[in-house]
Design a protein around this nucleic acid. Sequence first.
DNA 1: TTGATGATTGTTCGC
DNA 2: GCGAACAATCATCAA
Length: 523
Amino acid sequence: MQQHLAEAVAGAFSHCLGFYGMRLGLLFTRRWCTAGVSPKKFDGESTYVGMSDGNPELLSTSQTYNSQSESNEDYEIPPITPPNLPEPSLLHLGDHEASYHSLCHGLAPNGLLPAYSYQAMDLPAIMVSNMLAQDGHLLSGQLPTIQEMVHSEVAAYDSGRPGPLLGRPAMLASHMTALSQSQLISQMGIRSSIAHSSPSPPGSKSATPSPSSSTQEEESDAHFKISGEKRPSTDPGKKAKNPKKKKKKDPNEPQKPVSAYALFFRDTQAAIKGQNPSATFGDVSKIVASMWDSLGEEQKQAYKRKTEAAKKEYLKALAAYRASLVSKSPPDQGEAKSAQVNPPAKMLPPKQPMYAMPGLASFLTPSDLQAFRSGASPASLARTLGSKALLPGLSTSPPPPSFPLSPSLHQQLPLPPHAQGALLSPPLSMSPAPQPPVLAAPMALQVQLAMSPSPPGPQDFPHISDFSSGSSSRSPGPSNTPSSGDWDGSFPSGERGISTCRLCRGSPPPAASPKNLQETSAR
DNA sequence: TTGATGATTGTTCGC
DNA sequence: GCGAACAATCATCAA
């Protein structure tokens, strides 16, 4: 489970390539630590080298965590000052480059990452990747490291069985002491193992914990009480799941615009799930939430702008819809007619995958990817890819900051190099939705950088192969990300991306959820 | 300010 | 087969 989760994180990372990593990792750490719960406890000294993100103090901060103690007080909250961190837009390349180099070239001759502490990169590592991606900078150098961390954690979590890590360079594995591994297990793994200790066998396809087992619930509750989960999801006192009977909504009624977070969730979850199909919704939610927290304000604004725009449309459509209802005396007939006269429901495509953000592959040349593949352990790749179709991972790259260009980048993934270049230009069908100017330019630059002919070579990302191969291998598969054909692509990450991918792959439209399909067809 | 609601996806279960 | 429920989390809105 944790292994999958870790891979999911790594996968999300691959899709969220960017340069915010360090900051995210820190944020993550801070968040969980401050929450009184650390998904993983830190052991030894963790130096946030490479996580500077322009924050020098982090570079030199050596945090010592008492891993032996279960007490939260034992955790020294790193002097993280997220609010003071420069805005993503202010994070210039130089900083990222520096970070990148610090990571890529800071490797010890033995391949270890002396200064790069995996301790700080637990689940939050995904954040790192995401943030990195959000800036559009290719901090690919961090990717392998992060992934290694994740996998190391995974290995720690599930050290008893051979895992994907076995086929990987034991770069970080060497960092992992038995102690840290066990701690990681207790810190990160326990929760999932308990909380998701579904009656289903470990190999069960269903990752969703069965809600039926009261014993399990008790265990989960007990666990959360003990662990002090930062986000006590299953808050005992939380609305006792009052039978919130979803009132039958008028299918013709305009669909409320999804929140920025929901959009982000869409973008991210697929990547996570793609890498870790067995990740439960809770796991994904937590990851996404953490990513969201770590998301740059500008990125959030980008989503919010989309939401606001959609909201405006929604209000207008709603007004029209209500007007139509009023004008039509019989509600049923009126509604039926309103569906024709007023198709506002179409305004917001039910579920439009926005995974147009360029995945890792977008930042790497095919040769790079190939190089990675060649260097990667087939076994590890196979394991990484998982027993399930991981395809969604590729088609779902979280895009936040790069969504303006993400579609084109995204669609090039499955294409040969020469075709990729041709796709760099924005599709003609590009959404008229105003793109955040503040993001556009930087992101364009970032994309260019990412697509520069001299992307970091495989030597810099020894594990990228997993991502790339995983993504590429997943690409042909059916995307479980629903999308509707009438999507206007006004959402951040590129619904266009999915559509274009669909076209370029020649694969059938991504499987939309039955609900959406029904809604769409109904309209 | 706070609580309720709805949104995200995928699985399960009941009708 | 379809739809509701559920999982964790956040945003939004109304009170």
